[in-house]
Design a protein around this nucleic acid. Structure first.
Length: 500
RNA sequence: GCCCCCAUCGUCUAGAGGCCUAGGACGCCACCCUUUCAAGGUGGAGAUCAGGGGUUCGAAUCCCCUUGGGGGCACCA
């Protein structure tokens, strides 16, 4: 790997992904994970997964499992973190679940309290809410008014006598914070504009801005690569880092993935759960390729890349600054490209979970090449192969007699055409019941009948598959078998007879 | 409201002062191929590089302003 990034101590870089299990793996989280992973790989560094499960109310183990499963599904693996050989707690930097690191946060909070960099705040939710409302009414920025910043011992005692439980706030130093963002370059914030924020809740639970800083230090994270939504949180983190005497990592804020209306991609306006894409039959290879190009490009016109190829080429510094709309049509196209590139055997294997169990493996293997170039998603296969598992009755019930009739013909003519087709098809021995023979015989019949192949085949297709759109007709008939094919043809002829 | 970030075809992007009368891909349109649908092939429409000022012999590329968009400002992450 051609590393260009260096960690403060000169060693290999250490990057991390820190998802919160408050929902299934989000597309945006997956992309951030991917960029971190690719950066670690490209630079020969270490990639760490840390579960940010301090929000006990919203986080669940199911979501954590979903996140880990889907990250693995994408092909993203981590060198340190949950489910890595050695276990969560082993290694110099674990555990990797914040819920198991509470003692560390408590210790660091105490240090801040002792140094005066943080203080206890006795304001209640109602009081804070009232302040915020007043600020809003006065068109002032909503931020903590600092009431508890310099309480006297007596005041503190009085609040505690009231039974109020204190949260811990960080006393944000009024200073200008500058940092050199990997992607945006020099950025500057005035922390005098910030309110003192809570780092530990009254119930003792430490909060995000605080734990992220503690963990990144203890896990020796050298480069923090995260979504742009964290850019304006960074000065808070840097202030905390300084107050705690930590080393400052390099920050890199990647652009957001957007809804079609260009707002931050959300569940409300887009499908954001990776699982949903997986269930529809998007391939992890296509998803990774697609995600990688949402905010980055190799600078050439190549566009199909494997994970390894991406790792070789990806440079965090070349990531764009502007957000990128999630374009489902482009994903569809890419998915189709990957599907078509697969071998028939591979496709059949991956199609298995998406088609009816009633479809035998052998039939699936044989129909795979027939439907390959018709698939956008693996899930689309179910409809394409359905005629093979449906009963003759179910197939017949899918269409009405008049649908069999081509525009320029009537029911009687169509019936005659089907009878003709049935004759030549029925004349074939079971042993000869193969696509090429079926096609040549049917074409001859069409010509003899005086119909264009398209008109002649249309009612046959509907009769045999129950659908106007199907895999190639003669291959479909071969797979269906002689008996079912003839039975379905008979059923169609019967339908026409009833109408006429 | 305040702070910060961003800005090339509808979308993803190439472009790091002259190679750009701006290239590719998706999508769209037409034609070809064709048993349906796809896939594939060929061609086309589509961006006065958000607008306005500079700098320069020369700007999509550098600077400033304006406009537009986005993000943040929780005892969520």
């Amino acid at each position: 790997m051609t590393g260009t990034l260096t960690s403060p101590d000169g060693g290999p870089i250490r990057v991390r992904m820190a998802p919160s299990p408050t929902g299934p793996l989000h597309i945006g989280t997956a992309r951030t994970s991917l960029y971190n992973f690719l950066t670690a790989r490209h630079e020969g560094g270490t990639y760490i997964l840390r579960i940010e499960d301090t929000d006990a109310l919203r986080g669940t183990v199911e979501y954590e499992r979903d996140i880990i499963d889907n990250l693995h599904w994408l092909g993203i693996s981590w060198d340190e973190g949950p489910q890595v050989a050695g276990g969560d707690d082993v290694g110099a930097f674990g555990p990797y679940r914040q819920s198991r690191r509470m003692d560390r946060y408590a210790r660091e909070a105490d240090r801040l309290l002792a140094s005066g960099a943080a203080y206890r705040c006795y304001c209640t939710a109602d009081e804070l809410d009232a302040v915020r409302k007043a600020q809003d009414a006065a068109r002032q920025p909503p931020r903590y008014n600092g009431r508890c910043r310099s309480l006297t011992d007596e005041q503190r005692a009085a609040f505690e006598a009231e039974g109020r439980r204190a949260a811990i706030r960080f006393a944000v130093p009024a200073e200008t914070i500058r940092f050199d963002d990997l992607i945006r370059g020099a950025v500057e914030f005035d922390n005098a504009l910030l309110g003192d924020f809570v780092i530990v809740r009254a119930d003792g639970m430490p909060l995000y801005h605080f734990v992220v800083v503690v963990d990144d230090e203890e896990m020796r994270i050298s480069h923090v690569i995260r979504g742009e939504d964290h850019l304006s949180n960074t000065p808070k983190h840097i202030a905390l880092i300084r107050a705690l005497g930590y080393r400052e990592p390099v920050f890199g804020h990647i652009p957001l993935i957007l809804n079609p209306d260009r707002s931050k991609m959300s569940k409300r306006k887009s499908q954001t759960a990776m699982t949903a894409y997986r269930e529809q039959g998007y391939l992890p290879e296509a998803m990774v390729n697609f995600l990688a190009f949402l905010g980055w490009s190799p600078g050439t016109e190549e566009e199909i890349f494997t994970l390894d190829e991406l790792a070789a080429r990806f440079e965090i510094g070349k990531v764009h600054k502007g957000g990128a709309v999630f374009d489902g049509e482009r994903l569809d196209h890419l998915n189709g490209v990957y599907i078509r590139a697969m071998s028939d055997e591979q496709l059949a294997l991956r199609l298995r979970p998406f088609v009816p169990e009633a479809l035998p493996d052998d039939a699936l293997r044989r129909i795979a090449p027939l439907i390959k170039e018709r698939l956008v998603r693996l899930g689309d296969a179910a409809e394409l192969v359905a005629f093979l598992v449906e009963t003759d009755g179910q197939v017949a019930a899918r269409y009405a007699a008049d649908e069999l009739v081509p525009k320029k013909a009537d029911a009687a003519q169509t019936a005659a055409a089907l009878v003709r087709a049935r004759e030549v098809i029925g004349a074939l021995d079971p042993a000869d019941f193969a696509a090429d023979l079926l096609e040549s015989r049917s074409r001859e019949a069409a010509e003899a009948f005086g119909w264009k192949p398209g008109d002649f085949f249309r009612p046959i297709r509907l009769a045999v598959t129950g659908r106007a759109v199907s895999p190639p007709l003669f291959g479909s008939m071969e797979l269906l078998g002689r008996d079912a094919t003839l039975a379905r043809l008979d059923a169609a002829i019967e339908k026409l007879a009833v109408t006429a």
